[in-house]
Write a protein that binds this DNA or RNA. Structure first.
Length: 808
RNA sequence: GGGCAAGUGGCGGAAUUGGUAUACGCGUUAGUCUUAGGAACUAAUGUCGCAAGACUUGGGGGUUCGAGUCCCCCCUUGCCCACCA
């Protein structure tokens, strides 16, 4: 295994490659888990051979619910469960020969580690970015835990599937929205797969629009209405407000609408909490009896409706509505609210349909505006900026940027997490635990079960809870909430740079040398949670001048899932996971690694197939056989079925051709690894091996170069053969081979000759043969003559070294 | 409903990004060697056809000398998101 060295010990440039550290579940790893590890191991090994000091670390993200639930069920302490599980995982990973630097292994549940998770949290607290807020949180009645918005799937708990309820609870929040702008903008500075950037951008949901300033008629209340498509602001005929909006009560107080509206809201809120509520289908609303007065100087008063599709916490929770929004349109149709289109398709027939309110017409950049009159005839797509300026000049509203991103609910009422290191003092309020008292260790409790009151099990530990206030020394109580499992993973890549440091989360020197992460591979499912959270923490630490860069990861790629052979997901409940160690026992670690990389495109989902394992295994045996031809001492390759592979029979071949193929393969493998096209890299090595197997003798130099490009994929067999060839140093410390430009050029090329688009012949030409000469060759070809005789040749097209196309 | 992928032999998948579709692997068939083979090697293997040849990348149109690749319409599947205009 590899030991990454600190700056002082090496002059090599560093390279930091990273995989998401695993959550050590009781089920152990299945073959799907190691796809990412194998890919990054290939890249890390190649980098070492290219002369980098590679940091490729590993650790355990071990806080979290599954372990806690297991502890509740069995009564075994989560620490013990974690120990057992990490031992299993470690054994499984070691069986595959990943070149992790095990000397840097970390564990988020180790007090020496979570001391710094707590420390970083306190920095958030001190900067006012951690705050307590009473809010309607998502409450899972089964897990008895508050969930972040991001953890609710279809109105259900992401973990257990129980329908989520709303509950008021004081929660610690982290103000990620303060960083929304930078999290969006700085995506321009990093090399992430485009689909990852897109997904993060959609999640952050930046939208630029206008906050209109309005008054409620007869009440004199000022309200703001956010609209992200202000171009169509002359089209609105009504206003929609979210049912849970705080203004609703004020609007109807003391009016004849009060009872019916409040009843409606209560019912609607219940309905919306259900998981199968479909806002588009079940569009509901009620008139409040109130109007927006003279909206944006239009002279029109807009009736205010409560609408089921508006949310209070996006924008201002109240929106000027018009025909040019599909949901507003559907709402108006349902409640027979008059419409007033202001933009039209260029096609007159279609335009008439819009005039007749036959359909909603929205978001077409080519649309022609009829109003506002100052913009008559201009297009929707280009008039936007001018119209916003126009609105601002007239004082109707202000330019405003909104984000979908919400602040992060950071409290959990659970046992198995980092205690939030704060003390609540009746006189001083929330006081941070002094740095010298960190970490606040998890106390031993008998019962891990969360309480029905929604308090953490820690709340029952009165000895632990009751403390002196660090400021006034009066009686005070500890916070009993713990952190979510995303906390420890938000900064773990920094700890790897200096995992044993007790003075800081990592030394400045080591951070400067090792960070940022150069290449980070992980699952798409973490794009909007872990990946975004850790970018947020990193930027915060950057602002405190504690890390040297503003982004944690320079490059982010993702792997496709490995599915069971029936195309479904591996899952604990089905118990269909395949243990990599079972495969290793039969086929060997190298075969498994090769197969994982060979089975399909790295970024796409592939189904596991036990039969497919055979191919890579045979390939390795073939490589072994070629090694035997080099007069090596016989050394049996163990095989489950017993027996020894045959030495193979040499045939007379042309060594020179093999040499050319070798250099072409070096080029292909070198390039394919960088692009994560591992499958085609392996296929080209298979072709090379077949050719080397056919020829009578292969030069040791050639064979060693082949072993070197194979080494990142199949580290064990290549190392073994390397040493039997007399090499004293590890193949993994050798220098990545360079291909010879002269050898990858062909003197002769076979090209296709097409007649009217159909391939009719193939001819050999010189690699740099002139166009005229090639055309002549083609036209004189017997097979071609058959097809062109008696016809008029209109055109002859020559694509260099590819084909000739004759058009009759 | 939105976003992102994807649809190619019996199966997993290649295709230098508009230039010989089906590389490589699995499976299958025949042969060689063998006491034996669940080893290895050789050959064949998209479909139809005796052949010449014709057809073929989810379906239908189009652009082009030339389309798996580009454009339009439609169908199907997966993942993520979904009251957020």
């Amino acid at each position: 295994h590899a030991e990454s060295q600190k700056n002082s010990k090496t002059k090599k440039p560093k390279y930091y490659s990273l995989i998401e550290f695993p959550y050590p579940s009781g089920a152990g790893m299945h073959v799907g888990h190691i796809r990412s590890n194998t890919a990054m191991d290939v890249i890390s090994r190649k980098r070492r051979m290219e002369g980098f000091n590679v940091l490729y670390p590993i650790g355990w993200d071990a806080f979290g619910l599954p372990t806690e639930n297991y502890a509740i069920k069995t009564g075994i302490h989560p620490t013990k469960v974690t120990k057992t599980n990490t031992d299993t995982f470690r054994r499984q990973l070691k069986a595959l020969g990943f070149s992790f630097d095990w000397s840097r292994e970390i564990n988020t549940t180790d007090p020496k580690y979570y001391k710094w998770t707590q420390w970083i949290f306190l920095q958030f607290f001190k900067k006012g970015l951690a705050y307590k807020k009473k809010m309607a949180i998502n409450w899972c009645p089964k897990d008895k835990i508050g969930l972040a918005n991001e953890e609710v799937v279809d109105g259900c708990c992401e973990r257990c599937g129980t329908a989520v309820e709303k509950r008021d609870k004081e929660q610690w929040m982290l103000a990620i929205t303060k960083y929304a702008e930078r999290l969006d903008k700085d995506l321009d500075t990093v090399d992430y797969l485009e689909k990852i950037k897109i997904q993060q951008r959609n999640w952050i949901g930046k939208s630029q629009g206008v906050n209109f300033k309005c008054k409620v008629k007869d009440l004199g209340i000022a309200v703001e209405m956010y609209n992200s498509v202000p171009q169509t602001f002359r089209a609105e005929t009504f206003t929609v407000i979210a049912p849970e909006h705080h203004l609703v009560r004020k609007l109807v107080a003391g009016t004849k609408y009060e009872k019916s509206v409040l009843d409606f809201v209560e019912q609607l809120n219940k309905k919306r909490a259900q998981k199968d509520f479909d806002a588009d289908k079940e569009m509901e609303g009620i008139f409040t009896g109130r109007y927006i007065e003279n909206f944006a100087g239009s002279g029109r008063d807009l009736p205010i409706w409560i609408a089921s599709y508006v949310v209070a916490d996006y924008g201002t929770g109240i929106v000027n509505a018009s025909t040019h929004d599909t949901r507003d349109f559907a709402f108006a149709k349902k409640f027979k609210i008059p419409l007033h289109p202001v933009m039209f398709p260029q096609d007159e027939v279609e335009a008439q349909k819009v005039r007749n309110d036959e359909y909603s017409y929205a978001k077409d950049p080519q649309a022609v505006l009829a109003e506002p009159l100052e913009f008559k005839g201009r297009h929707w797509g280009e008039a936007r900026e001018d119209i916003i300026n126009f609105i601002e000049k007239n004082g109707w509203g202000e330019r405003k940027t909104n984000f979908k991103l919400r602040d992060w609910v950071f409290s959990r009422q659970r046992y198995w997490g980092e205690p939030i290191p704060l003390i609540n003092c009746p006189t001083c309020g929330w006081v941070p635990v002094p740095e010298k008292d960190l970490p606040v260790k998890l106390p031993n409790v008998k019962n891990y079960q969360p309480t029905d009151t929604g308090e953490s099990p820690l709340a029952a530990m009165t000895k632990w809870v009751n403390v002196k206030c660090p400021q006034c020394k009066g009686k005070a109580k500890r916070e009993t909430d713990t952190m979510p499992n995303w906390a420890g993973s938000s900064w773990y890549y920094l700890r790897y740079a200096d995992p044993k440091n007790s003075k800081a989360f990592a030394s400045e020197e080591n951070l400067k040398y090792f960070t940022p992460v150069d290449w980070y591979n992980g699952g798409m499912e973490h794009t909007t949670l872990h990946l975004l959270y850790s970018r947020f923490w990193h930027k915060f630490l950057y602002d405190l001048k504690l890390v040297p860069t503003s982004e944690p990861y320079m490059k982010r790629t993702s792997h496709g899932l490995i599915l069971a052979d029936d195309g479904t997901k591996f899952s604990k409940s089905k118990g269909n996971g395949i243990d990599p160690q079972d495969i290793v026992k039969v086929y060997g670690a190298d075969s498994l690694r090769l197969y994982e990389m060979f089975m399909g495109p790295f970024d796409q989902a592939v189904s596991w197939s036990n039969d497919g394992m055979v191919g890579p295994r045979r390939f390795i045996e073939k490589v072994w056989r070629i090694g035997n031809k080099l007069n090596l001492p016989p050394s049996p390759l163990p095989y489950q079925g017993g027996g020894m592979p045959s030495p193979g029979k040499g045939r007379v071949g042309e060594g020179f051709e093999v040499n050319k193929l070798l250099h072409k393969t070096i080029k292909k493998v070198t390039e394919d690894i960088e692009a994560m096209r591992f499958n085609t890299a392996i296929s080209s090595m298979m072709i090379l091996a077949t050719e080397m197997d056919k020829v009578e003798s292969v030069s040791g130099v050639d064979f060693k170069m082949f072993l070197q490009i194979l080494a990142p994929f199949a580290p064990h067999v290549s190392e073994e053969l390397w040493s039997t060839l007399g090499e004293k140093k590890s193949i993994h410390l050798s220098t990545w081979p360079k291909f010879d430009e002269n050898l990858i050029k062909d003197d002769e090329v076979k090209i296709a000759v097409q007649v009217n688009g159909k391939v009719r012949a193939e001819i050999m030409i010189g690699a740099d043969e002139g166009e005229e000469s090639v055309k002549e060759k083609a036209l004189q070809n017997e097979l071609i003559l058959k097809h062109i005789s008696g016809a008029n040749i209109k055109k002859v097209i020559y694509v260099k070294n590819r084909l000739i196309s004759i058009v009759l």
